[in-house]
């Protein structure tokens, strides 16, 4: 099995108010079958043995679905591979002797908590503002009484695959959260179940998004390119359309 050695430049920051700096670490004889996070585990084990504090980074399922992990590796959200979370990137994607910069997501709306861990609760607050269908437990109708054309169901599903990792914000030059918000708006606006709250939902979610301090979308497409689930930019167009329809089309109950 092949092994490589890499130099890591890792952002270390003790707490939210600490100023932070890059530290250099050497990862020697790393098996290329290791995942990137396993490589960080090895580095951390060594740091602990040396009596130093390990690098704090967020991770959980390590199979690309929970959305916990998120590192800006060598200038890319989730590292060098397309459609892949950093937990699923393996060391074979790096070269022997390479220097790897590891940075946290950078955005005003995602303040750093420690080292590479950021606070993404802004996403939760956006969902809390309206990213749901109001249906109390028990009040649902029989599932098959709501037929949904497969093509629409598939589109809604594609949008619903968002894992909320924040890579879209991290990669966007404006730290905009439009891809995240648009994925949820699209998912629910396409389904018949989501119609009752369709306009209310989009207005509230956009209000919250703006209040959180994310930047404005300038349609560069970086979010789509770096999204580990390849959420489509067309969702953002739909979000725009839904929002403008909600705000600009007069309705009888607008008073």
């Amino acid at each position: 099995m092949a092994t490589i050695s890499v130099t890591l430049k890792v952002w270390r920051q003790k707490s939210r108010n600490d100023s932070g700096r890059f530290e250099t670490y050497f990862a020697k004889d790393i098996n290329t079958e290791m995942s990137f996070l396993e490589m960080l585990d090895v580095v951390n084990e060594n740091l602990i043995r040396e009596g130093k504090e390990p690098i704090a980074f967020e991770h959980d399922c390590r199979e690309g679905i929970c959305g916990s992990c998120g590192l800006y590796v060598n200038g890319r959200a989730h590292g060098p591979l397309k459609g892949t979370t950093i937990c699923q990137v393996h060391m074979r994607s790096f070269k022997d002797g390479e220097t790897i910069y590891v940075e946290p997501w950078r955005a005003k709306a995602f303040p750093i908590i420690k080292d590479l861990i950021v606070d993404r609760s802004a996403f939760d607050r956006i969902i809390q503002a309206g990213g749901f269908i109001s249906v109390d437990t028990g009040s649902a109708v029989e599932a098959n009484s709501i037929p949904i054309p497969k093509a629409i169901a598939d589109l809604a599903f594609e949008a619903a695959t968002c894992i909320g990792c924040g890579a879209c914000v991290a990669a966007c030059k404006n730290a905009s959260a439009m891809l995240f918000v648009s994925a949820k708006v699209t998912h629910l606006a396409l389904l018949p179940q989501g119609q009752a709250e369709r306009y209310r939902r989009v207005i509230k979610m956009v209000e919250q998004m703006d209040a959180e301090g994310f930047g404005n979308c300038s349609n560069t497409g970086a979010c789509e390119a770096e999204c580990p689930k390849s959420i489509s930019l067309t969702n953002i167009a739909r979000l725009n359309r839904e929002y403008l329809a909600a705000r600009l089309v007069p309705r009888q109950y607008d008073n």
């Binding site: 749901f132 269908i133 249906v135 109708v141 709501i146 169901a153 619903a160 989501g194």
Partner: peptide
């Protein structure tokens, strides 16, 4: 029923 009403996009 509950999940469909919430908008869970099951295969169709």
């Amino acid at each position: 029923d509950q999940c469909v009403a919430q908008g869970v996009p099951f295969a169709r």
